[in-house]
Design a protein around this nucleic acid. Structure first.
Lengths: 339, 339
DNA sequence: TTGTAAGCGTTATCAG
DNA sequence: CTGATAACGCTTACAA
């Protein structure tokens, strides 16, 4: 079929260099002193033969796969992309490789991947899910693997997390809008349950309104889904009702864009008729026109911290703080204006 | 530190089931006949002990890692995301896992990853690069691994490729624009060299113009880069020159959006003043307002075919056609109009 | 149908 | 400092 020329092994190197394989092992790992002369000889042979240690064999004896599993709900998403940029980059730095699993946000798929990754001997798992329910209890209860979840509350003991302070972020952005003269703000959340910050978003929104002495209209809080189309449809209902808010705050850039598109498609002007602000400040926010105002998350840093936490844990270091909160920002662009 | 309870191995199963490890191996792999009675007994023990075969040990003896490496230039990109969606999904179907490598489009990084993947014993590589030069000759010349490149001409013998017919696509879109009354079309390409279809784009564009009896203005063909910002700047130069075309055809959606943003940011209307069409028809095209007209690529299918080709090759099947061309489409939306 | 034993390519222990 | 040699967990001739 094709020339399967046997790869060169440590044995070949040993033979050619006239030393034992242990010596070769020692020089490539620099694990024990080896005389300079032999060391040089071995390196020369390695070079000559183009020898590369077989990581599989190494894994077998070391019981370390140097693999970290990453489960994400979608690859076609700037947030996920940026997160992966960070995770992949830092992991490589520590000589870890990333095994990618795309769950499409499906619960069963997630569970299957969790188990698959464990059986594939990954040394840790980074788990990103937009699911609303606290899930996969059985898995998390029995696994020995370190797991860090992105942008969630820890649903179980022992799970590490990295996110921003959602309550503070939502409150700050809402207050900002109020400051700009908005008294009727529609909030489109992307989930209600505890572990995805739904309640924090609600509290942040309501507290900001309360502090400003504004009324809280229950019908101005709607629950969407991280996808654009759902927000579009939700916005459509509001448009049809004829009772437009002066501002819309969506807890996802995609949803913000969905709402904005709906408004513009129906003849309204953003931000002249309605201001729109998003959440995350992904690339989409600056690509879109009008440029989207948004709560910004340090997405790259979140990924970077997540992967570092895992590796630290693997290396046996103690994790002093397993629930990391990073600072957020508020970026006002063209999609919002004073009322 | 944490309870490192030894994982259960094939030996444990064998002992508990009172059979040899070969028998256990036979039942889990269904490789040789085993009496029903013993088979059941073994399965029961496996269940009871929660035994999972160690894929690392298996890889070592089988010399198959069940890993496929994927090198991409960016993760924050709808094209790449969709491609990965396909690759990951299909790979899992064949029990292959994906090792993700993000080169950031850096040549040295790409080369390093190519070598890393090979040394990690991956069984094949899918390589997506936006680089313009024909690169990594030494690697491709000596590697035994099957490699498929996405959206390129094969730069070397033995490299498989999957793409659309760029010449036909560009020509068709250009003709479409001409049909709509456009006589002055600015083309922003994302590369000049042979293996990224730069010449095909040029030929397609020029042939369409020729067939319509239109003049070819050399200054209406500019070379950008797949990134948005470069197209923005390029467009800015044209805006500053005061000599606006009636339509812009960018060979990347991102570049189309970059050009469009530039125009809109400088007070021009799209498509009233200038029509814009993109290339690829990524999600960005339908998210953006005005919705982008574009040449559509079957992105998911391209990824799906790429991964299937690799796996077929690995399985020893002959690849009859190693340079696959898929059909494209033309999607006209809001960013273009009759002149 | 089942078991024994020889690898797969490394690392690590233990003598020398 | 160096070299045998025993693992690591699994598959697969080869025997029985």
């Amino acid at each position: 079929m094709r020339s399967e020329e046997m790869a060169v092994t440590i044995k070949d190197v040993a033979k050619k260099a006239n030393v034992s394989i242990s010596t070769v092992s020692r020089v490539i790992n620099d694990s024990k002193p080896v005389s300079d002369e032999i060391k040089k000889r071995v390196f020369d042979v390695i070079e000559e033969l183009g020898y590369k240690p077989n990581p599989v064999a190494r894994s077998l004896v070391m019981k370390k796969s140097k693999l970290i599993g990453v489960i994400v709900p979608d690859l076609k998403n700037y947030y996920v992309g940026e997160l992966l940029n960070a995770i992949e980059e830092i992991a490589k730095t520590y000589e870890y490789d990333i095994i990618l699993c795309n769950s499409y946000g499906d619960l069963d798929q997630e569970k299957r991947y969790l188990e698959l990754l464990e059986s594939k001997q990954v040394e840790g798992i980074i788990f990103l899910t937009f699911q609303f329910e606290g899930v996969h209890k059985e898995f998390f209860e029995k696994t020995q693997l370190p797991v860090v979840m992105i942008n969630r509350e820890a649903p179980f003991e022992g799970i590490m997390t990295v996110s921003i302070d959602h309550y503070a972020a939502v409150k700050e952005m809402t207050s900002k809008l109020i400051e700009m003269g908005h008294k009727d703000i529609l909030m489109i959340r992307n989930g209600e349950t505890k572990d995805v910050f739904g309640p924090d978003h609600l509290r942040g929104y309501e507290d900001a309104l309360k502090e400003a002495g504004l009324d809280i209209r229950k019908d101005r809080i709607v629950d969407g889904h991280f996808q654009r189309s759902v927000a579009y449809d939700l916005m459509k209902q509001v448009v049809d009702s004829g009772d437009l808010p002066t501002a819309v705050f969506a807890t996802t850039d995609s949803m913000a864009v969905g709402a904005s598109n709906c408004l513009m498609d129906h003849g309204y002007k953003v931000p002249d008729d309605v201001s729109i602000v998003g959440f995350y400040d992904t690339d989409l926010a600056s690509i879109y026109r009008p440029k989207l105002s948004a709560v910004s998350h340090p997405i790259y840093d979140i990924g970077a911290i997540a992967i570092r936490m895992i590796i630290k844990y693997i290396d046996g270091h103690e994790i002093k703080d397993s629930q990391v909160r990073l600072p957020h920002g508020i970026v006002m662009r063209e999609s919002s204006k004073e009322k």
